[in-house]
Amino acid sequence: MWSKEMFRALADQLYGDPNLHKFIREQVIEQLRSQLELYQNYIPMSYNDYLMKMSREGEWGDHVTLQAAADRV
């Protein structure tokens, strides 16, 4: 299961600083917002509700947020 640590791990690997996890989360949410046609069919809830949920610090990442992070880089 992915966890909130996914954002810290990505920040560490991409920028060498796990404390940039908030920046990574923001970038992932921006990717999800700007490319909803790529991701919306993989979300089993309202897309806007999903974006609000994933925007919260401490919310666990999932396969969709990991894909969005990979697509953003």
Rank of each mutant, 00 (worst) to 15 (best):
R72F: 03
L14P: 05
D17L: 04
Y42K: 11
D71M: 14
P44E: 12
N41Q: 14
Q67S: 13
L51R: 01
E37N: 07
Y39D: 01
D62M: 08
Y42C: 09
D62F: 05
L38S: 03
S3Q: 04
D17E: 07
D12K: 11
R56Q: 15
G61P: 06
N48R: 08
S46V: 03
Q27W: 10
R72N: 09
L10I: 14
Q35I: 00
G61S: 13
L38R: 01
D71H: 13
K53L: 12
R33V: 04
D62A: 03
E37R: 03
L66S: 13
E57F: 05
Q13H: 14
R56Y: 10
S55Q: 09
N48L: 06
L14W: 12
D62G: 04
E37A: 09
E26Y: 01
D17P: 01
M6Y: 13
V73D: 05
A11W: 10
T65S: 11
K53A: 10
R33I: 02
L38K: 03
A9D: 14
F7M: 09
N19W: 12
E30K: 02
Q31H: 06
M52V: 11
W60Y: 08
L51C: 08
Y15K: 07
E26N: 04
M45Y: 15
D71W: 11
V64D: 15
Q40N: 07
E57T: 11
Q40D: 11
K4M: 11
Y50R: 02
Y42I: 10
D49R: 15
E59P: 08
Q67V: 10
S46D: 12
A11N: 04
Y15R: 10
K53R: 14
V64K: 09
T65L: 10
Y42T: 07
A9C: 09
R72A: 03
V28E: 00
Q35W: 00
M6E: 12
Y15V: 10
Q27S: 06
M54Y: 00
F23I: 05
R8H: 15
D17I: 01
A9R: 13
N19T: 11
I43K: 04
L14H: 09
H21N: 08
G61I: 11
F23T: 07
D62L: 00
V73W: 09
G61T: 09
R72V: 02
E26D: 04
W60P: 06
M45E: 15
R25T: 08
E57P: 12
Y39A: 04
D62Y: 06
L10V: 15
M6H: 15
H63E: 03
P18C: 10
N19C: 04
V28Y: 01
E57I: 08
